[in-house]
C-alpha cells in the first residue's frame, strides 16, 4: 500500500472541508441536537421517576439513555464519514480520474476510512463536551471498558460504510438515498435504547448478528453495576472484524463487476442523470 496515495485521498477531503465550512457544520450539528434533545428527555425521565408515588429506587437515565445516544451517533458518524467521502467522488464525477490512476482499492478505501475517523472524532468531541458539561454524563465512571465498546462500534461503522459505498457503486448514484437511513433501520434491532429481551424472537435473531447489540447490552449491564461479559465482547469484536472483512470483499467484488461490465466507465454519465 502506498501511503502517499492514501494521504492524497485524505488531503482531498481536507481541502473540501477547509474551503467549505458548510460541510463541517453537519458533522457536529446533528449530534449536538441529539445530545440536547435526549439530554433533556433523560432529565425529565429522572425527575418523573424520582417523584413518582411509591418509588423506592432512583433510576438514572443519563448513562443508559444519553450514553446510548452518544455511542449510536458516534457509530452513525463513522458510517456516514466513509459514505460521504465516497459520495464526494460521485458528486464531482471523479471516478474515471481516480480509477484510471495507480490507486488501488485498498488505498482508496483506507483513505475513506481515515477521513471518517477525522470527521467522527470532531463529532465525538462535541458530543462528549455537551453530554459531560451540560448533562453530567461521566464516561470515566464506566472505566476502560468504554474503549472496546468504541472500537467495536468503529469497526462495524466502517464495515457498514464500505458496504453502503459498494451498494451505491453497484446500484447507481440514485441509491445514495438508501444509505442515509441505513443506521436508523438497524437501530430497532441493535437494542440501542432497550434490552434485546424486549424484542420479539425474530428481531432478536437479527440483533444477534449486529455487533452494536452486544455493546449496548454490555453498557446497560455496566451501568446497572453488573460485570461485563467477556464472551459478549469477544462475540461482538469477532462479528465486527468478520463483517469488516466481508464488506471489503464485497466492495472489491462490486468494483471488479463494475470494471467488467463497463459500469465504472459510464458512472460519470450516470452521476449526472
Amino acid at each position: 500500500m502506498r501511503l502517499r496515495a492514501v494521504a492524497g485521498i485524505l488531503l482531498r477531503q481536507f481541502y473540501l472541508f477547509r474551503s467549505s465550512p458548510v460541510r463541517l457544520v453537519p458533522t457536529f450539528t446533528w449530534v449536538a441536537v441529539d445530545i440536547i434533545v435526549w439530554g433533556f428527555l433523560t432529565r425529565y425521565l429522572n425527575a418523573v421517576t424520582s417523584h413518582s408515588a411509591g418509588a423506592t429506587t432512583h433510576v438514572d437515565f443519563v448513562p443508559s439513555l444519553l450514553g446510548a445516544v452518544l455511542f449510536w451517533d458516534f457509530f452513525t458518524r463513522i458510517m456516514q464519514g466513509v459514505t460521504t467521502a465516497f459520495f464526494e467522488d460521485i458528486w464531482s464525477r471523479n471516478f474515471l480520474n481516480l480509477f484510471a490512476s495507480p490507486l488501488s482499492i485498498s488505498e482508496y478505501v483506507t483513505g475513506l476510512v481515515l477521513t471518517s475517523i477525522a470527521t467522527s472524532l470532531i463529532a465525538l468531541s462535541v458530543m462528549l463536551i455537551l453530554a459531560t458539561l451540560v448533562f453530567g454524563l461521566s464516561f470515566l465512571s464506566m472505566g476502560l471498558m468504554v474503549i472496546p465498546f468504541v472500537l467495536v462500534l468503529f469497526l462495524f461503522g466502517v464495515a457498514l460504510g464500505i458496504f453502503a459505498s459498494a451498494m451505491v457503486l453497484r446500484l447507481g448514484p440514485a441509491s445514495e438515498w438508501l444509505v442515509w437511513p441505513m443506521t436508523a433501520f438497524l437501530a430497532p434491532f441493535a437494542g440501542v435504547y432497550y434490552p434485546l429481551s424486549t424484542l420479539p424472537e425474530w428481531m432478536r435473531a437479527i440483533g444477534a448478528v449486529l455487533p452494536p447489540s452486544y455493546v449496548f447490552e454490555s453498557m446497560r449491564a455496566l451501568v446497572n453495576g453488573q460485570t461485563l461479559s467477556a464472551t459478549s465482547l469477544l462475540i461482538s469484536t469477532t462479528l465486527a472484524v468478520l463483517q469488516l472483512l466481508l464488506a471489503g470483499y464485497f466492495f472489491a467484488r462490486v468494483f471488479r463487476y463494475a470494471v467488467r461490465t463497463g459500469l465504472l466507465a459510464r458512472y460519470s454519465a450516470e452521476a449526472t442523470s
Binding site: R2, L11, S19, E88, S101
Partner: peptide, 28 residues
C-alpha cells in the same frame, strides 16, 4: 500512463493547485 478527456473533468470544487497536489499524491 495518464490521460485527459473532455468527459473526465477534474473536481470542480478544488482549486487548480489542490487538484494537482491531490492527483500528484495519488500518483505518488
Amino acid at each position: 500512463t495518464n490521460f485527459a478527456a473532455v468527459y473526465a473533468t477534474l473536481p470542480g470544487n478544488l482549486t487548480v493547485m489542490q487538484n494537482l497536489r491531490f492527483f500528484g499524491m495519488v500518483y505518488a
